[in-house]
Design a binder for these strands. Structure first.
Lengths: 155, 155
DNA sequence: TACTTTGTCTATCAACATAGTAGACAATAT
DNA sequence: ATATTGTCTACTATGTTGATAGACAAAGTA
């Protein structure tokens, strides 16, 4: 599994939206330009990525003044793994052991490698499918507070 | 970590050479054409891959009639991980957590993702760095015998 | 010696993926 | 009306992958 810039950017955008997630305030949107600036993501590239996330139902958007993007579902219901698969495709090391993009291979039944690739696939899934954007947003908030405190010492 | 055809072919060639490894018979070489046919690898592509393996010291070769390739070291001393890194580069999910191809990232010190990518990297290494071509060749021999026995039942 | 067999090395190439950029358009708020 | 903000499609530069081609070098054999 390699994380592309597209995937990395998608995750960072979702982490930001997760820290701002508030089901009681449905009219709060985070703008493209803000995400682009704070996460250091090329604006027009980010635009395309947010479109993918919106079309997949993870975020919703509003046009016009005071428009922007917001999470469409609770952060705890979105796993890191599903976002990676959405933006970067299969997380398996090779197509013959992929659940999402399986491709048949002639060697399959007498292959010494297949069980190994399956093990790698499972180990990766164990990590990324058990982390939600709620987990990430909580950790991000802690980091943000720590950085803010450190900066205050300099005043 | 994605295994490319190049990596897959390199591993399959080395598994074959490992099953034929015999330190007592230094004059036994396995020919390019045989590896190509039995492993279903395009001959000219395989040639380039074997060149990489030879230049890295994993195999040795002999030209001319009865020439070919043979392992240059004991299968037990070659891990799956080092061959993957040789042919496909870093096995880390992202450059900022790669040991072999590390690249600095501005976010590093306040990144919620880095520890996760490190965990993924470690889980992958746990698998591929603890498997040697001796292990693979032993399993391959068992498979070959089983397949042969099955075929004999049809006679 | 001449010839066949086998590996060596470098160049080239088509197809695809990645990481963007550009610009016309649509909706919303004031 | 107008400014603001997201939408959508097209395009492009660059690199990687998975090969293919062909001239060359060495080793064995008649």
């Amino acid at each position: 599994m390699k994380i592309s810039y597209k995937g990395d950017y998608a995750i960072k955008a979702l982490v930001l939206l997760s820290t701002k997630y508030d089901p009681n305030n449905v009219d709060s949107y985070c703008q493209l330009s803000e995400i682009s600036k704070t996460q250091d993501i090329p604006l027009k590239f980010l635009e395309q990525i947010l479109l993918i996330l919106r079309n997949a139902g993870y975020i919703r958007s509003r046009r016009g003044a005071n428009g922007g993007y917001a999470l469409a579902k609770a952060p705890a219901t979105i796993t890191l793994g599903e976002i990676i698969r959405l933006t970067d495709g299969s997380t398996a090391p090779i197509a013959c052991v992929s659940k999402s993009c399986y491709q048949y291979c002639n060697f399959e039944k007498k292959c010494v490698l297949k069980p190994i690739w399956e093990e790698v696939r499972e180990k990766i899934s164990d990590v990324i499918d058990n982390i939600t954007f709620f987990d990430l947003s909580m950790k991000q908030k802690v980091i943000d507070e720590t950085v803010q405190n450190k900066e205050m010492y300099f005043i």
